[in-house]
C-alpha cells in the first residue's frame, strides 16, 4: 500500500477573522515520496505543530491542496467524509512520547488499529508481531507498556504507526526523550521501515543529533516552508 507519498500545495491555515486573523500557515508546499524520510524543522511558533495537525486531518486548513497517495484529500475543503477513518487507515502517528495505552499489552497496543479497522483479531496480532520482529521488540510482545524501556516504547509506537501500512507517517519529535544512540537507532528504523513499506515519513524535530541524517529538509519559518538538501549522513 504505497501510493505516491504525500503532496501539499499552497496550504494555509488562519486562526480568527477580520482584524484578529492570524495566519499560522501562509504557504506550505511539500512533497514526500514513498520510502522517503524528510525532516521538518523550524523555531517555536513557526507553525510546525499546526502543519502536523493539518496533515493529520485533526484541524481543517483554510486553503490549499493535499494529495495522499492517489487521492486528493483536501482541496480548499475536505474531500473525505470520515476523517477518523482517514487517520486510522491512511495516516500513521508517532509522538514525542510513545503514548501507549497503559492497560493494553504491547501486542494489543499495536493490533488495536487494524482491529478498529475491522481486521480480525488474530490477523491484527499477526501483523503486530511481524512488525515487532522488524523492530527487534518481538521478545516484549506480551509485556505491558510500563515494563518497557523508553527506546522499546518508542519502537512499539513506531510499530503502531506502521501497522495499517499507511502511505504517510507523521512523527512529532520522536527522538526527543532519547539519548544520541537511541535517537539514531529510531531514525535508522524509520528509514528502514519507510523503504520496506514504501511509506512517506515526515519527522518534525529540533534534535540536532538527527538533523544531519535527512537527505531533504523542509524549514518552516513564519508559516512558510523552504526546501533544502540535507546531509543525508549514512546511518549504518
Amino acid at each position: 500500500m504505497s501510493g505516491k507519498g504525500i503532496q501539499i500545495t499552497g496550504l494555509k491555515k488562519r486562526y480568527g477573522r477580520g482584524d484578529t486573523a492570524v495566519y499560522a500557515l501562509k504557504k506550505v508546499d511539500m512533497y514526500v515520496a514513498p520510502g522517503e524520510v524528510v525532516g521538518l524543522i523550524g523555531p517555536s511558533g513557526s507553525g510546525k505543530t499546526t502543519l502536523l495537525k493539518c496533515l493529520g486531518a485533526v484541524i481543517e486548513p483554510t486553503a490549499g491542496r493535499m494529495i495522499l497517495g492517489d487521492d486528493v484529500i483536501y482541496d480548499d475543503g475536505w474531500k473525505v467524509k470520515d476523517l477518523r477513518a482517514l487517520r486510522r487507515d491512511r495516516i500513521g502517528f508517532v509522538f514525542q512520547a510513545p503514548y501507549l495505552i497503559p492497560f493494553l499489552d504491547v501486542t494489543d497496543n499495536v493490533a488495536l488499529l487494524p482491529m478498529l479497522a475491522g481486521v480480525p483479531n488474530s490477523q491484527s496480532r499477526k501483523r503486530a508481531r511481524e512488525l515487532f520482529k522488524a523492530l527487534d521488540v518481538e521478545h516484549r510482545a506480551e509485556a505491558m507498556p510500563s515494563q518497557l524501556s523508553g527506546g522499546e516504547q518508542q519502537r512499539v509506537a513506531i510499530a503502531r504507526g506502521l501497522v495499517n501500512h499507511p502511505p504517510v507517517i507523521l512523527a512529532d519529535e520522536p527522538t526527543a526523550p532519547l539519548d544520541s544512540q537511541r535517537a539514531l537507532a529510531v531514525i535508522r528504523i524509520l528509514n528502514h521501515m519507510a523503504r520496506k513499506f514504501e511509506t512517506a515519513i515526515i519527522v518534525v524535530t529540533h534534535d540536532e543529533k538527527i538533523i544531519p541524517t535527512f537527505k531533504r529538509i523542509y524549514h518552516i519559518r513564519d508559516g512558510v516552508t523552504y526546501e533544502e538538501a540535507g546531509q543525508g549522513r549514512d546511518l549504518e
Binding site: 493529520g56 485533526v58 477518523r84 477513518a85 482517514l86 487517520r87 486510522r88 487507515d89 502517528f93 509522538f95 503514548y99 495505552i101 497503559p102 488495536l112 488499529l113 478498529l116 479497522a117 503502531r160
Partner: peptide
C-alpha cells in the same frame, strides 16, 4: 484523557 485523545487521533470511533 491523554489515552482517549490518542484513541481518537488514531481513528477510534466515538461509540468505542
Amino acid at each position: 484523557i491523554r489515552e482517549i485523545a490518542v484513541l481518537k487521533l488514531i481513528g477510534t470511533k466515538n461509540r468505542t
